[in-house]
Nucleic acid binder design. Structure first.
Ligand SMILES: [Mn+2]
Ligand SMILES: [Mn+2]
Ligand SMILES: [Zn+2]
Ligand SMILES: [Zn+2]
Lengths: 137, 137
DNA sequence: ATAACAAATGCACTTCCATTGCATTGGTTT
DNA sequence: AAACCAATGCAATGGAAGTGCATTTGTTAT
């Protein structure tokens, strides 16, 4: 099991208290989080710092951004050794219209999508909306 | 060939000059448009009117909303007799990262997506990012 | 035709989120 | 210790979405 320090180090990010806390927060959350979620969890910290921390994480492929159609950007931890930028690696995202949670379905990969002649597909974003397992039970 | 008046009438929307103009604008555009696009095309008109017009069109299934991941909502005309709300009717959307245009690929339907047990899929949004036919040529 | 009513439009204002500039703090390296 | 660069904090900005209310316009009833 890798420690948080090891994760950050392996991605060439300086280890700071703030970054460790935010990383830990993301690990503990099983769903995608908004910037406001993080903000609420760390009232003491400045919003900008949180924003830039998550942006740094994004650049370094520690988290990936999710646009679930709510208009608010969400973030979730990448899988270990994921290649976010490679199309075939991408998984589905599920947005529950009942509890408003957004979940990475990492086991469910996006099927091969064909586009018309002349179009070049580089990336696919797929969001399923509906009722999550917690809410449907 | 249906006239614009007939389209609006069939959807039970009052025919006004503004609505005719905006509908015409949408027909002539072959790509999805933002509210700003419409705003720029009709400098004289108030933004709110344009906003509410497009919302009315959306409610009446004249246009559908597209979230292509740019953070700005886009709109495009629905196909004739489309059932936007029915999952199996939904088509792909293509967002060109070069020219920033978003295109309805109405011929390319979204494949059947399976979700884990307990999850109920009600709707699927699929956006392909890449280079469009105009830009790749 | 006129009055009464309802819908559409225009203007002002608000809210929310994302993003940036700049000063300050803190950690590393020589 | 000095120099340096990255990280943080504070303040402000920008963009888009949305709402309240007054006014105008169109429709319907008398
Ligand atoms: Mn994910
Ligand atoms: Mn479309
Ligand atoms: Zn739920
Ligand atoms: Zn293009």
């Amino acid at each position: 099991m890798e420690t948080i320090e090891q994760v950050l180090e392996s991605k060439n990010i300086r280890i700071t208290a703030m970054r460790m806390l935010i990383y830990k927060f993301l690990v503990e959350k099983e769903v995608a989080v908004t910037l406001s979620d993080i903000e609420n969890a760390f009232e003491k910290a400045d919003r900008t710092t949180l924003y830039r921390t998550i942006k740094t994480f994004e650049e370094k492929d520690i988290v990936h951004q999710i646009d679930d159609g709510t208009g608010i950007t969400k973030y979730a931890l990448c899988e270990k050794d994921c290649n976010c930028e490679i199309e075939t690696d991408l998984h589905l995202h599920f947005h529950c219209t009942n509890c408003n949670k957004t979940i990475c379905l990492t086991e469910n990969k996006i099927p091969k999508i064909t586009v018309p002649d002349g179009f070049i597909s580089e990336n696919v974003n797929l969001v399923v909306k509906g009722i999550c397992d917690k809410c449907s039970g």
